[in-house]
Structure formats: C-alpha cells, structure tokens
Design a protein around this nucleic acid. Sequence first.
DNA 1: CGCCGAGTTGAACTGAATCAAGAAACGTGG
DNA 2: CCACGTTTCTTGATTCAGTTCAACTCGGCG
Lengths: 189, 189
Amino acid sequence: MEFIRKFLEQSVTFTEEDWKLFSGKWRQQEFAKKSFILKAGITENYLSFIEKGIVRFYIPKDDGSELTFVFAFDGWFMSAYDSFLTQTPCPYHVETLTDTILWRLSYADLQNVYSATILGNKIGRMASEQLFLMKTKRELSFMQDSAQQRYLNLLAEQPHLIQNIPLQYLASYIGITPQALSRIRKRIS
Amino acid sequence: MEFIRKFLEQSVTFTEEDWKLFSGKWRQQEFAKKSFILKAGITENYLSFIEKGIVRFYIPKDDGSELTFVFAFDGWFMSAYDSFLTQTPCPYHVETLTDTILWRLSYADLQNVYSATILGNKIGRMASEQLFLMKTKRELSFMQDSAQQRYLNLLAEQPHLIQNIPLQYLASYIGITPQALSRIRKRIS
DNA sequence: CGCCGAGTTGAACTGAATCAAGAAACGTGG
DNA sequence: CCACGTTTCTTGATTCAGTTCAACTCGGCG
C-alpha cells in the first residue's frame, strides 16, 4: 500500500485513522501477461491502482478488429470507470499487456469509505479528476491534431510505450489503421 | 440555491450543517447573450452551476475559424475544469449563447470546503465524475462513429440544441466543416 | 433597398480506409 | 536450435469521406 500512500501524500493530507479505514480494504491481485482483467458484458466492480504493468482497454468490432482507446501504466489509478460509476455492464474488454500487479478496492467498499471518511471522497475526486484531464487532452488532440501529430505526441509523452506495444494497438489508439500508421512511420523516419 | 440542493439530493446525503457551510459560498451572476464568461489566457477561478442558459467552449484557430468542443445547459455543472484543476491559463474561450444565470463558487472557497466537509468532496467528486462520463462518451463517439452518425446522435440526445445553435457550431462540435454538415443534412432529409 | 453573415451547392483535392499481396518477426514443437 | 506456421508489419492500388476554395442563395436588419 505504500505506493498508493506516497501517491496520495503528494496532494492530499489525511489522518492516520482515515488512512487505516481506507487502506484496510484494498487487496493485491496479480495477472499474467495477455490476460483479461475485465470482460465486456461484466460490470466493473473495482477501482484499481497499478503497482506494476501495462493495461489496455479495447472494444471488439464487428469486423474482428479491435478498437484500443486506453493504455494505463504503473502508478496510475485504473478502472472501467464509466461502468463502475454507473454500475452497468462494461461495453469493452480490459486486458494486461505485460505481467501486472494491481491493488483493488471494490465498489461496495468504496461506497462505505465515501460515507465514512473525507479521505475516501478525496481519493474518488482525485481519481475522477485525473481521468477527466486525460480524456480532455485526448478529446482536443482528436479534434485539432492530424494522425501524424497524434503519433508524434505519443512518441514524446510515452516513449516507452513504443517499445512495448504492438503497432496495431497504437494505430487504433490514435484513431487510424495499422497501414496508415506504418506509412506515417515511414514518412517521418 | 434550491436548484443545486435538489440536484445534489438526488444522489448524495448530507447534514444541514454541511449544507450551510457549503451553500453560503456560492454567488449568483448573470451574463447577457453572446458574452464571455472566461477568455483564453485567464485561469478559471470558478466552478459554476447553470441555473439558466446555454454555454459554449471554443478554441480560436489560426485561420480565423473556431473549434467548438463543449455545449453546457441548464442544470449542469460547468467550468473550464482542466484550467480550474491545474490552475493554469485556460487555452479556450467560454461564452454564453443565450442569456445565462450562473451560481459560482471560487477555487479558494472550494478548497476550503474540501478540507472542511465531506459534502464538498462529494460535490467535487460528482462534478468530476459527470464531466468524465461526458468526455468518455464523446471520445468513443469520435473513434467509432462516422460524422453522420455523430450528428444523428446529437439530434437524438439534444434535440433542443438544433433549434438554438447555429449550424457552424454544431459542425465544429462533431468535428467537421459547416459544408460537410450541410451535405449530411441534405442526405438524411 | 442594399448589405452582410449564415447556409448551400459545386468541383477539385487529400488523408486515410479498404482490399490485396508480400516480407518480416515471433513462438512453438520437434 | 532450427523449421514451420502464424501473426504482425509493410507496400501498392483503388476508393471514399470530408476538406478546401469559390460562387451563389436566403433571411434579417440598418
């Protein structure tokens, strides 16, 4: 739990009491590379913190291809958060790309923490804020950048991603086909 | 403040004491049609609740055109929230489309409410969650729907929008030019 | 009445999708 | 550790949705 505590202490203050109530509920869980954390159709029951690993969210499309729209890394909160918040079935898959260790808090436990402590609400708020900022950035990138620019941004902001992640997932993430990304790569190299 | 209270009571419980502490800080403010709520370059200082009116967020582009990416309506929380959260200058304009009444809470007051009450954090969390869900929906729509489909979705979900908002803003919002939207309209009618 | 911004329509152009085929990389079993 | 098959990536040709540039129409308003 030290990861989470350190992460939180950067921006929130809390009492030892609150921390105990809050931290007691989290459970560690390990996932092998290329395994499902959550399958489409299931309702997300966890807010997770990634201790180690890379996670991918994707929608299986009718033609057999996959639409990747989230990558999540070490030190981030991670959840199929729309499914989690609304407690409705998740329309996409959540899968590990590498061996992964999560710390997880269930929906019910989180609701209890929300009603019992200020800290819980702060965590919930901060997780939501972090996710909101990411989506906002991505929205603007889609609206005002070209595909090539989105790829260059990705290179600049997540260079390690390029080593670890198959081109087809990256292509999907920036909203184009693998073929198109292959041509962009050729053009800029 | 009754609007906000009613809105909150749908999903949060709180004490009368918390409510007093929280509600005392909000200030009502009116804006005429087509006036700026926030200009680009200024840091957002308010979380607002829209009692009445329609608000538009847009980025002025180099070629003189505008990129509209948010509409907000009666009964919603509204803020240049990325600027607000990070307390950095806002890269876009926020403008009223109609006469508008806002209830506003300053950043400093909100931070105080956060440290003093659970309710404050709940509000902050819920505002973030609401905004996150909107962005998520929009992200997926951009990735998997055609421009025509995005327009049809808009028609279905916000029919009153079509009456009140110039076509060029709608076009920009769904990510295409006014000409392209004009052709889509022709095609589907 | 004439102007002006908003919307429409047309024609040429472009970035990316699609379809298709080959090359490279990857992993699994022998 | 190599051989084979499978998946991933690249490259080419064609098609398509949407952009751009330009001209024209319409409705409101001084």
